[in-house]
Amino acid sequence: MESISLLLEEALSPYQVTLTTSGVQDSIVTVKNPAGAIVVERDVDRAQLMDKRVLVDVVDCLLRDIKIAEGRLEPSVIAALRSAAQTRNAAAA
């Protein structure tokens, strides 16, 4: 898990990332800004952190959540992202 934590730190730099165990299968990813304030905190299934392809998706989602939390992502872009996700989910089903 330490190597995953380092990968997350590198991918989300300059943010500080803390990965803590929560239950049997979950981990909590806490992302803090350089001032130390929590920007994003998410529960993540530990299996998602072990699969490198899924880990990329986790990082992408965290980056999106950071932008939303900091007001750097417009509502229209959020709606477009949701629509694209729904289209992907429908195609996968």
Rank of each mutant, 00 (worst) to 15 (best):
E70T: 15
A91P: 00
I78R: 11
I68S: 00
Q86L: 11
L81Y: 08
A85N: 11
E74K: 05
A79S: 09
I68C: 00
P75I: 02
G71K: 14
I68E: 07
E74F: 01
A91W: 02
Q86V: 05
G71W: 15
R82G: 10
R72D: 15
A84V: 02
G71R: 10
A69Q: 10
A79M: 07
Q86K: 13
I66H: 05
L81M: 12
A90C: 08
T87H: 13
A69I: 12
L62M: 09
A91E: 01
E74S: 01
S83I: 03
A85M: 08
R72P: 15
L62K: 10
R64F: 00
L81Q: 06
S76K: 09
T87C: 14
L62I: 12
A85Y: 03
T87S: 14
T87E: 13
Q86T: 10
C61Y: 13
T87F: 14
A85W: 04
G71M: 13
K67P: 03
A84E: 07
S83A: 04
A91T: 03
C61V: 09
G71Y: 15
P75Y: 00
L81V: 07
K67T: 05
S76P: 02
V77M: 01
L73I: 05
S76Y: 07
K67E: 09
R72S: 14
G71H: 13
V77F: 02
D65V: 00
L73G: 05
A85G: 13
S76F: 03
K67D: 05
Q86E: 14
E70Y: 14
R72G: 14
Q86F: 12
P75A: 04
T87Y: 09
D65Q: 03
V77W: 05
N89C: 12
S83F: 02
E74Y: 03
R64K: 07
R72E: 15
K67V: 01
L63E: 10
R88G: 09
L62Y: 06
S83R: 04
G71D: 12
D65G: 01
V77K: 07
S76Q: 07
R82S: 12
A69G: 08
A85K: 06
R82L: 08
R82N: 11
P75S: 01
L81N: 07
N89H: 14
A80K: 12
S76W: 06
L63G: 04
R88E: 09
I78H: 12
A69S: 12
L62E: 09
A90K: 11
S76D: 11
N89D: 13
L63P: 00
I78K: 09
E70Q: 14
E70D: 13
T87R: 14
D65K: 01
L81H: 02
A84W: 03
E74M: 04
A69L: 08
L73D: 05
A80E: 11
E74Q: 03
V77D: 02
A84H: 08
R72N: 15
A80Q: 08
T87Q: 15
A90N: 06
E70K: 15
R72I: 14
A79C: 07
A69Y: 05
N89T: 11
A69V: 07
A91Y: 00
K67L: 04
N89R: 11
L63R: 06
A90Y: 06
A79N: 06
